[in-house]
């Protein structure tokens, strides 16, 4: 943690960045995202195993958009998000300094995009055991059972859109659900409204999701949205050999076509 702080302090002191995006201690023994603009403020910067929120999200927020240059304490999920955002033309390399941190919490120093790509490849996606178990359970289901499972899983959704708000890849200024002419997705949080919303979101993230699990973590009613995304990512990887978050240059499987793409889905 000290080396992360040292790096952050130096970057601010040398005027290399205007802002450092990281974590500080929050309330009730929680940690939380924080924004540091002076070397002194960095005293409060922390990094520990609880700092799992995907703060790449803030790169698209006003505070980061307005900063001329910034640094971010980036665990592998954040690095993946940054690369994916860059691939989608949402952030520019010259503006951002990545303080790379491994899954184990070890600081690997500043990463440019090329190094970040290498780093990203060496840091596997983390999946909790219970998530694995759930995936196995769902995969064993018949099509009808799967459908019923998800209808049931989405039913408590209250459409607070915390999943969308906390997802770095959900950066659309006008979300599909807000587009009302025509009204593609019912706004009301009933069975179909919830189903269509989550299915639409999952499809928009298919092949783009970097599997940080933030959607699930932020969901107040604990819907396993991360599982849905994870299963789709897995599918895209298997079928199209495409994985998000590994490169700053990327064409999502679902909006590209190559001669080797399988067509076995045409029945």
């Amino acid at each position: 943690m000290e080396d992360i702080k040292k790096l952050a302090r130096e970057l601010l002191a040398d005027n290399k960045v205007q802002l450092v995006l990281g974590f500080e201690n929050g309330t009730a023994n929680r940690v939380r995202p924080a924004f540091f603009t002076t070397p002194e403020a960095v005293d409060k910067l922390i990094y520990n195993e609880f700092c799992i929120q995907n703060i790449a999200l803030y790169l698209k927020k006003d505070i980061c958009q307005h900063a001329a240059s910034l640094a971010i304490t980036a665990n592998p999920n954040v690095v993946r998000s940054i690369l994916q955002l860059a691939a989608e033309n949402q952030i520019k390399e010259e503006k951002i300094k990545i303080i790379g941190i491994t899954h184990e919490g070890k600081c690997v120093g500043l990463l440019d995009f090329k190094a970040a790509e290498e780093f990203s490849k060496t840091q596997p996606k983390g999946l909790k055991d219970e998530d694995k178990a759930l995936i196995e359970k769902i995969q064993a289901m018949s099509l009808e059972e799967k459908f019923d499972y998800w209808v049931e899983a989405f039913s408590p959704c209250i459409k607070c859109y915390a999943c969308r708000a906390s997802c770095p890849m959900c950066y659309c200024g006008k979300c599909n659900v807000e587009s009302n002419n025509p009204q593609w997705i019912p706004v009301a949080p009933h069975k179909y409204g919830n189903m269509e919303w989550h299915m639409m979101r999952a499809m928009h993230l298919a092949g783009r999701c970097i599997n940080c699990g933030e959607c699930n973590r932020s969901c107040p009613v604990d819907i396993p949205l991360n599982i849905l995304s994870y299963m789709l990512s897995d599918f895209v990887l298997e079928e199209f050999e495409s994985e998000a978050g590994l490169s700053a240059v990327f064409t999502p499987a679902l909006s590209s076509y190559t001669m080797v793409d399988k067509e076995n889905f045409i029945k």
Binding site: G173, K174, S255
Partner: peptide
Amino acid sequence: PMYSSCTGCFLCQPV
């Protein structure tokens, strides 16, 4: 102030 709902992701370009 909206300009457009386009996010400028340019994922449409390769298609």
